[in-house]
Amino acid sequence: MRAFPALLALALAVALTFLTVPIVAIFVDSSPAELIDSLGEPGALDALWLSLRATAMALALILIVGTPAAYLLATRSFRAKPVVVTLVELPLVLPPAVAGIALLAAVGPSGILGGAVAAAGIELSLQTAGVVVALTFVASPFYVRQAMAAFAAVDRTLLDASRTLGASEARGFVRVMVPAALPGLTAGTALALGRALGEFGATLMFAGSFQGITQTVPLAIYAKLGTDFETALALSAVLVAISAAILLSVKLVHGREALGGAPG
């Protein structure tokens, strides 16, 4: 074997080992039976249930608002568009701790909009609603970015065709643009889902870590770390499984898109 190919193979082996050993360790450190037992802990179940609910609500908000917003950004051009797109994407690169502080400063009890939020009868801080806000803030750019790209990739004459066939733009959006962009929208949803499930810093700072109310799975893992390593491992195993499932489904959807979406 030549030296250079051998070097390449070695680099890949090192990277692969480094990236997979920790994940494998989660599953081999304790037996599967022990992991499943640990999930029975009340704190663990509460955290799983809360993560599920908060993520579902955040995703619903992201889809309902993000889809039309992404469509607008993808199909219209206006002068402030680059600025708007940059602002929408900003939370992508924002450190989670900064996101938490920013949310506190905006809609926290003493934030600039805190009074208005309280007056509307909405309680965010130390409440599940606060978790939803944090997850939405952090995860929505992942969806909007992907959705924008998906809409932009759809042939605009499809929308023109829909209109000349008697459908309003709103109807064309629902009947043509969303179905045609669906693979991309699905990928964006999966990315946002993954980001929301793993959210830690912003949730901790903005909503706190109260079992059953604001303690999502990542927060519970951190809380159990010192006292109940077994449960922390079990919860981590669940997140690994979900993450793997998300990645796999995105790859499947993209594979189908490549097969069926090509004009031919």
């Binding site: 066939l165 043509v176 045609a180």
Partner: peptide
């Protein structure tokens, strides 16, 4: 959508889904 036009597009613009 309110003009009764039958527009046949160059690449036909059939809805792929």
């Amino acid at each position: 959508e309110q003009r009764r036009c039958g527009y046949v597009f160059q690449e036909y613009a059939l809805f792929p889904h």
